[in-house]
Write a protein that binds this DNA or RNA. Sequence first.
DNA 1: GCGTTTCGACGAAGCGCTTCGACGAAACGC
DNA 2: GCGTTTCGTCGAAGCGCTTCGTCGAAACGC
Lengths: 359, 359
Amino acid sequence: MATMQDVARRAQVSLSTVSYALSGTRPVSADTRRRIEEAMAELGYQPNAMARGLASRRSNVLALIYPAMERGLGGTVAEFVDAAAVTARENGYHLVLWPFRTTQAPEIRDLVRQGMAAGVLLMEVALDDARVDTLQEAGIPYTMIGRTRDVEGRPSVDIDFEQTTEDAVAHLVGLGHRRIGFVNHSLASRESGYAPTFRAQEGYEAAMRSRGLAPVVVHSDESPRGGRAAAAELLERDPELTALVTMNEIATFGVMVELQSRRIDVPSQMSILSIVTSPGVGEMTNPPLTTLHAPGAELGRLGVLKLLSLVDAGRPATPDVLIPCALEPGGSVAPAPGATPRTHRDGPGSAVDGDTASS
Amino acid sequence: MATMQDVARRAQVSLSTVSYALSGTRPVSADTRRRIEEAMAELGYQPNAMARGLASRRSNVLALIYPAMERGLGGTVAEFVDAAAVTARENGYHLVLWPFRTTQAPEIRDLVRQGMAAGVLLMEVALDDARVDTLQEAGIPYTMIGRTRDVEGRPSVDIDFEQTTEDAVAHLVGLGHRRIGFVNHSLASRESGYAPTFRAQEGYEAAMRSRGLAPVVVHSDESPRGGRAAAAELLERDPELTALVTMNEIATFGVMVELQSRRIDVPSQMSILSIVTSPGVGEMTNPPLTTLHAPGAELGRLGVLKLLSLVDAGRPATPDVLIPCALEPGGSVAPAPGATPRTHRDGPGSAVDGDTASS
DNA sequence: GCGTTTCGACGAAGCGCTTCGACGAAACGC
DNA sequence: GCGTTTCGTCGAAGCGCTTCGTCGAAACGC
């Protein structure tokens, strides 16, 4: 492996000049620069990352902390991870995977202190998350994917659950639905402080109430079985439901099965709108699900950019962002039975599903 | 941040003694060691990873190269990645994500030469893979996840497709099936050198022929639509099929839909055995799929261990491994119509699905 | 009892780079 | 025309560690 010293000798300049030519920190004449570049090319020179990091006291590694084994790497998460890795690389950084439980905050802090990473991306942030406090105290640059209860001064990017549920309800109401149920994640997830469960429900209930409609919520395990039970319970609580908003992919499969076994047709008798959904899952049912798909890739990209702005003073600050899920037409939403869909003005709700579109 | 020098002063020993105490490279008396450990604890000392790497010319980073955006991070891949990251960490290494297309071999080589990673894990290895040649030439430690056409001298861990398809056919034949079709990945994937498409088909055909049965193969896009078409084509090619082996998760959903629309009951009239399947997808259909699930986690773990044995001379060598998929009972496989299941002796095929088990 | 090991600790030389201060020479000001 | 600035370059001092050679002193052999 050629070193910078080798390049310097070959180009007949000093070591430091090579360094300046490489980094652009100080001006170098065109002629000198050319000789240096030639020398580098001839030697196949590659700057040593460790030496660079040691001398500059900087790291070009970002750590992605995801909850090991807890929820696993699902569809949205995978999309997120991929986008984050790609964005990092595009910006000259590397993304390292740190599978840590939420209780392992000290380990995270110590790894950063060892200089392994310049900053961390915290996935699956809970409403109360010890990791955030630890990182904040240690002065470690971080960005939350998700939000703690209080967001003040805590950099984050997240799904806009409030807007997403509002959009979902607006979309269905726009198609004439008045009785709309909600299938949430499990009660256990809510009690463990899993923020999406909490925020989506708040959003759904607010959206319903603001229209004078009665919210009907059930929680469901992440299983088809749970989904079947949830559908059954919803129908018992309100037999006149004409639409369901679901925020639990696996359970949604069960919901479809339960409706089918009761001979309730989707979408003519019951509309299903699956929100915060991973790419591709809509296609797995028959009919394909109409979804509001989670902006996993966008969050990954923005999360990295935000973290970079904290890690590298030279970059422009980026604001916290909340991204709503986007409507992806499928075949599981239709106008309410007997209702004439009215058109309304804005938001994803204004679009009617492609395959059930009124003129 | 405290340095080793600070620790040395505080413990009244020389810098090098601290280093030896930490690494165990040379003996240190019990008393000295104790003083050093106290000093480290008091100062909250964390060794600097970069300085360590620079001085020792070693890196504790492994790179996972996965094909950016091409097939994305699906279920099996996610499981693999997670297991790899966990295993790396358990062994004091870090896993960094390098999203690279298969054509970007030189970029990979250069990053390793910069000292960013001690070795690389190559996912989605094609039958002919330029990356493998480049890494081999450059003398970079690597491990293939998958196998090139010729495996000689090329460290790898992979799914045992031959065994898996043999097990699948044996399982079905054990239940009395004689006419068994196969739904493969797309023809395009095969032509692009995607090895699983190739190997699984060879295996399936061999397993059929060795029993004097006629293989019936169709390729399908990775879509439910493709799966529907595939099922239709299979039924046209052999209307008397009683079982299908599928190796295409998304298409399998379509297969189920097509059978349902033709009022062919699964499993009483048609058994479906989904092989090389991601965790959880079996549950998403009704009835739940009987699967041979891909050993993603195991491959991740073994892949990392194998790479570590190449990177770090101190570790025991590990052999190349081929792991077959394991049967996960569901409700989509039953004895062939009119057949008395005979019991046979060994392999996953000896187990009958839990929920259709004969006494 | 004296030469020889063995043990434990030390000092110093790097690893390959960044960055600071300095310094000639050319360009400038008036 | 001579002091002053600007430009391009150089040398050297680290960054925080690993590792080699060395060297007392204690333990050993006969």
